[in-house]
Simulated scan of single mutants.
Amino acid sequence: MQKIGARKIVLAVAAAATVAVTALAAPAPAEARGGRIAAGVGLGILGGAIAGAAIANSGGYYGPGYGYYGAGPVYYGGAPCYWQRERFWDGYGWRVRRVQVCS
């Protein structure tokens, strides 16, 4: 349950930052003097990067911490198999694919 609360907080902070940047940039008329347009574009890109990082970091949950996941049961029987390149005609031209050969 703690992970869901953190996600909501991060998204709320990102939304508040986006609204704040929009409120600061919206009232001023667009002028090309003094780099104001460049600053607005830069702040917009920065706000988008912050919001994107917040959404990316609030992704899926993979369980508690690190753990050792050993190999499962192994079946050692039958003939050994190997991979081999094989040429085939696909109707348009010759192509090469890898096939598993068990003898």
Rank of each mutant, 00 (worst) to 15 (best):
G91Y: 02
G91A: 10
P29E: 14
G78T: 02
G48R: 13
G93W: 01
V13Q: 13
G77Y: 03
A56I: 08
L11N: 09
A49S: 09
C81N: 00
G70Y: 02
V10Q: 05
K8M: 13
N57S: 14
P29R: 08
W89C: 01
A56Y: 07
I4S: 04
W89Y: 06
V13F: 15
T18Q: 11
I37K: 11
A28I: 09
G77H: 10
A32Q: 12
P73A: 05
G48A: 12
G60P: 06
S103C: 00
A15P: 09
G52W: 08
I37M: 10
Q84N: 11
V10S: 09
A15D: 13
Y62S: 02
G5D: 13
V19C: 08
R36W: 09
G44D: 05
Y76F: 04
Y76R: 04
P29Y: 12
I50C: 03
W89F: 01
K8A: 12
L24F: 15
V13A: 15
A30R: 10
G67K: 00
A32C: 08
A20Y: 00
G47S: 15
E86I: 01
A17N: 13
R98M: 09
P27G: 11
L11V: 05
G93R: 00
V99N: 04
S58T: 15
R95Q: 13
Y75I: 00
G42E: 12
A15K: 05
I37P: 06
N57Q: 13
V96N: 14
D90F: 00
V41A: 14
E31D: 14
Q2M: 03
E31V: 15
A56M: 06
Y68S: 10
L11A: 07
T18H: 12
